[in-house]
Design a protein around this nucleic acid. Structure first.
Lengths: 172, 172
DNA sequence: CATCAATTGTTGTCGTCAACAACAATCTTT
DNA sequence: AAAGATTGTTGTTGACGACAACAATTGATG
């Protein structure tokens, strides 16, 4: 079904793709600066997507020296604030799947930041704890994360950041 | 390197994993409702991530009947507002990679919503246009997207949504 | 007490998405 | 004409969300 227009470049010269070569494009090679988005402006999802992309990239860049990604940071933060939590509890709290949390904890355990202690009350579950190494590491991560948060404030404004946090508080 | 703690469940009984079974966990099986996030609250990235997840799921659900995802919608909207754009221009404008746009356009072209017209001025590039079918379809998509936007307003408040759009306007 | 449903961690697959790296065709510059 | 940049394309990699199974264990029901 899709094997028609798609091969226009590689099989260049098949002539079948050259139908209707009307001089349509007025601004075909526009630099991408002055393109109207029309209805796209006014869509919260679009703005949020772009912002989330920017903010994650800055987070990753700011914490590149310690090689910690946003999700890993959130996991360690929750465990640090609530030692002994089960994987299910952490996953539910952070809105990630427990299947995904398994790999996250695997890597964090390999780096000896967290440890899965067999629960004394429920032999199915693990009590999650930060190791001593993990605690000191998290302290450094938090300093870097605070720096990243300052980047956000610089980008959108200190007051706007506060308002943003307040507006989205119902999602945390 | 990772083959130590990881096999604690499947190879249950290896006894190596049962070290330090101190009754650590106070709230090991908490329901996940009253877990403090500590430093996580106050991080813009976390709130934005959760919100973006919610908003995309609602968009997909609201436009499920027409089977259009947020990125597809943004592509069609930009093309509809700026006919004749090249793939490079669209990608740059939407902040997506041109490699990714290829597949997006493939599917949209298969459904006969957009068409890649060979550019008259630059034989490398394609001038992107909505088909007649694509135009009427986009009109319906916009109605559904407006309904989705109302869901957002219901979720975070009409005024908050307005403020949010204003704060993040620099990213659109 | 025996049995069955629910929970927990784990493994696996699938599809989306961002980020790169190549490549052929084509344009631009020199 | 030659060198370099651009455009569309293909491919790979890794993070991520969603879903479906499975063994071990717990809890509830009979």
């Amino acid at each position: 079904m899709a094997g028609q227009q798609k091969t226009s470049r590689k099989a260049a010269g098949t002539a079948a793709a050259i139908r209707r070569a009307r001089s349509h494009g007025a601004n075909g090679g526009a630099a991408g600066d002055d393109i109207g988005l029309d209805a796209l402006v006014g869509h919260a999802g679009y703005a949020v997507r772009r912002f989330q992309l920017w903010i994650f990239q800055d987070f990753i860049k700011t914490l590149a020296t310690v090689d910690i990604r946003p999700t890993q940071y959130s996991v360690m933060t929750v465990i640090g604030a609530n030692p002994g939590l089960s994987q299910m509890a952490v996953a539910k709290r952070l809105g990630i799947e427990r299947a995904r949390l398994v790999h996250l904890l695997d890597s964090l355990e390999d780096r000896e930041f967290v440890s899965r202690v067999p629960s004394a009350t429920d032999r199915r579950s693990h009590a999650l704890h930060l190791t001593a190494r993990g605690k000191t590491a998290l302290a450094q991560f938090k300093r870097l994360a605070a720096e990243h948060e300052r980047h956000v404030a610089e980008k959108i404004g200190k007051e706007n950041r506060k308002q943003l946090l307040q507006i989205l508080a119902c999602f945390t």
